[in-house]
Structure formats: C-alpha cells, structure tokens
Amino acid sequence: MGDDPVGLLDVLLGLAVVAGAATALTARRRMGAVVSFLVLGVLLAVLWSRLGAPDVALAEAAIGTGVTGALFVDAVTRGPPAARPPGAVPGAVPGAGARAGVSGALAAVLLGAGLGTAFAGAAGAGAAPGGLTGQVLGRMDVAGVEHPVSAVLLNFRSYDTLLEVVVLFVAVLSVTATLGEERPRHPAPAARAATLVWFCRVMAPVLVLVAAWVLFAGSDRPGGAFQSGAVLAGALILMDTAGLGPGPDHGRLLRVALVVGPAAFLVVAAGGLVAEGEWLALDPVWAGGLIVAVETLLALSIGVALTVVFLALGRGRVSPP
C-alpha cells in the first residue's frame, strides 16, 4: 500500500488532519482549542484505520481522544474562573497576536520542510521495508496469542509494556502528590439530575461489558489491555460524575487496584527467570494463560489509573490513594 501513487482519499484525510491540528493549535479561545483537538482525535482515528492499524485506531479513539479529551474538557470548564486569562474575549489565548502568528507560521513551515526531507530520505533509498514483520509472523505459533500486535506487546517486547505501565503508575503518583496532605474536600454529594443517575445505572454495566469484550478480543483481533482500560476508565468516570463512584473509604481498594497490574507483571517476570533462565520468559505451553491473566489485571490497573488522574484533576470526590 505504501508506494502506489497517493489517492484522493489520502490527500483529503491528510489535509483534514493538518487543518484540524492548525485549528486546535491556533484557536483564540481555550474551549475552541479543545473542541478542535477532539475533532482532530476523530480524524486521527480514521487516519490510523486508513493506514491499516486498527489497534492504533481503537487506542486513539479510546485513549487519545476519549480520556485525553475528557481531561482537557474538564480542565477548561471546571478550572478556577479567574484562571482563564483575562482578554477581550473570555478565555482568549494570550500571545496570539499577528506578529507572533507570522513568525510562528514561518518557523513552522521551515521546520516542517526540514523534517519532511529527513523523513523522505529515511523512507527512500535502501530502506528496510517490513522490518521485523517476518520475524514476528514466523514465531506466532509459540507466542500464546494469535494477534501479532498483542503478541509483540505482551510476549516478544513485554519489557516495554512493563515500563510503560510503570510510567502510568508514576503519573498517578505525581498527580496525587500535588493534592498535598489534606484530603480533597468532598462536596456533599449534591442530588444529581435524575436522568444522569438513571443513565449511569444503565450504561455502567454495559460499558464494563464492552471493556471485558475488548480485553478478551485482544488475543485474536485488535483490542487488549490499554483500549479496555480506557473503556473501563470511561465507565468509572461516568459513575463518579453521577455520584455513584467509589467514595473516600474506598481509597485502599483503589490503591490495591492500581498496583495489582504492574505487580502481576513483575511476578511473571521473576517466574520467567526462575523457570526459563531469562526475565519475562514465557513457556509456550503457559504463555496464553499467563498473557490473558496479566492483561486482565493490567486493564484493571490502567482503568483505575486513568480515572484517578481524571479525579485528581477536578479534586474529585474520591480520596485518591
């Protein structure tokens, strides 16, 4: 697909993505920037599926646009009112003057041109197309899962995934550190709108079901722990917005749920060393079961981690661990 001449659809999609990014970056008001960013997220999800990457499209929609979008909208709408920089237009973005615009645009064009030639050079002469595709597809029989991307994530390059889950855990630690000693003041759970409570009671179980389906689909088609974690985070955030979320006394439960994913990964890593002589080694016989077990706990930890980050942003109801 890579080297046939570019089609109309690709040109339109590329231009739409660049236009969306330009709007998001140069919007005059914060809310406008965030809305454009959400539109850009949707366009990117379409772009990834167009480039033959369904896993990435699913992750972009669930995490890149879903959770990140929720974080941005919450930051813009619930921020302290005075925080919005005073300007003629409420929420005007300072520094968006004409002179800055021209020099910024010039710099962007130059940088873009430079990067463009670099990328074209890399993809051009003598590049090694396909990279490790053959290696991965050749070893799928002992990988424990049928879907190549899940096999790479949780078996061939599982060390990267372990470090990445630690990055998410570190994010939760940093976020809860800024809350300081005093527990966030829990606003008395105001009577939530009846429709919201009803909607949450109906949708939360459905969302958890979708999260479970996405998780277990990951072994033979696009899906997996990260996308399922994001859907789970959506369910938990919805429950919290409707006032049904975990209360302050669930702090310890949340803390355990956060740690259980990476902890299981470390236990499997040590088990691999003891059994096979190398860290993270998975015996082909046990690989399938171990991967699904670790992936389930990972999805739980990722879902809770994303929710705690969201709640800490709004000094949410729950007392983050």
Binding site: V56, A59, V309
Partner: peptide, 28 residues
C-alpha cells in the same frame, strides 16, 4: 509500518506504547 502488506506489528506496538505515554504526560 504501512510500507508492507501485513503492516509491521512491532511498529504498531510501539505506537500503542507512545499513545499511553502521551496520555500519562498530558494528565500530569
């Protein structure tokens, strides 16, 4: 990754890792 017909799964895994790391940094 899209240069070959079955796209390179290693690159897709790297991109997934990149997306999660970006959301972690954005949250903080």
């Amino acid at each position: 990754a899209a240069r070959t017909d079955p796209p390179d799964p290693v690159l897709h895994a790297l991109v997934l890792t990149g997306i999660v790391i970006t959301v972690a940094f954005t949250g903080v």
